[in-house]
């Protein structure tokens, strides 16, 4: 399988899986975020990501003759194409959560800008739609990055987390998009934690997210 060039649905599933798994991770904050106003805001971001995942899966599903839900839930963990960055479980660590949010949204903006130029019209159109919402995610991430950077303590928490996650963030993108990311966040490129191998955190997440669905295979919920 690795010898083959990735198909267009493989690329699409990589984006969809990133959005799905990150959305799942971010939704772990719903109900326990640092303060109530942020709880509501961050939950919308998680919902936004799941919504985008669904849209990407729907497009892939028309190619593959399946459904968005089947793609989201009914594959084995090793079949997911998400990057390790999105798999990591961070609750209750807000610093790493925001660092990942900032890195992911910055990288995603670069990626989506590229996908908008796709020759696959449906995908390009979908990317343009997704971008309209991702703008708010990026604004939110930037607002947090700025606010944390405005105090010594906040900056320390944030910088440490960004440094730790930086190799993972590079793994979201390919080729020259990595340089664009490095430029945007003002860091030197390093060896990326590549997409392909999964972290140990994916299987427990998969177990939980598919638990109800697996309990009655084929049932409607």
């Amino acid at each position: 399988m690795s010898a083959q060039a990735p198909s267009r649905t493989d690329l699409l599933l990589a984006i969809a899986d990133d959005e799905l798994v990150l959305g799942w991770r971010n939704s772990e904050w719903t109900g326990i975020a640092p303060f109530l106003e942020e709880d509501v805001a961050f939950s919308s971001i998680a919902q936004g990501e799941i919504g985008h995942a669904r849209a990407f899966y729907e497009l892939a599903a028309t190619e593959l003759g399946t459904t968005a839900d089947a793609l989201a839930f009914d594959r084995r963990p090793d079949e997911y194409r998400c990057a390790p960055l999105v798999e990591l479980r961070f609750v209750p660590d807000w610093a790493r959560t925001i660092a990942r949010h900032y890195l992911y949204e910055t990288a995603d903006a670069i990626r989506i800008a590229g996908v908008k130029e796709s020759e696959w019209d449906e995908l390009a159109g979908l990317a343009a739609k997704v971008e309209r919402e991702e703008v708010y995610h990026l604004m939110h991430a930037q607002m947090w990055a700025d606010r944390l950077a405005a105090s010594t303590d906040g900056r320390r928490h944030f910088d440490e987390a960004v440094t730790e996650l930086w190799p993972y963030a590079l793994g979201l993108l390919e080729g020259e998009e990595r340089e664009r990311l490095a430029e945007t966040v003002g860091r030197e490129p390093v060896d990326a934690v590549e997409r392909g191998a999964h972290t140990d955190e994916l299987v427990p997440l998969w177990d939980e997210m598919t638990m109800v669905r697996r309990s009655a295979p084929g049932a409607e919920w």
Binding site: S27, E28, T30, V40, S43, Q47, I50, Y57, R213
Partner: peptide, 23 residues
């Protein structure tokens, strides 16, 4: 159960419900 919702639609609806309660 947010992490265990069995479809994407249910996941979104349940997250939104819990979000409303926080609100």
């Amino acid at each position: 159960w947010i992490l265990r919702a069995p479809t994407l639609q249910r996941k979104l609806a349940l997250t939104a419900k819990v979000q409303d309660e926080v609100g």
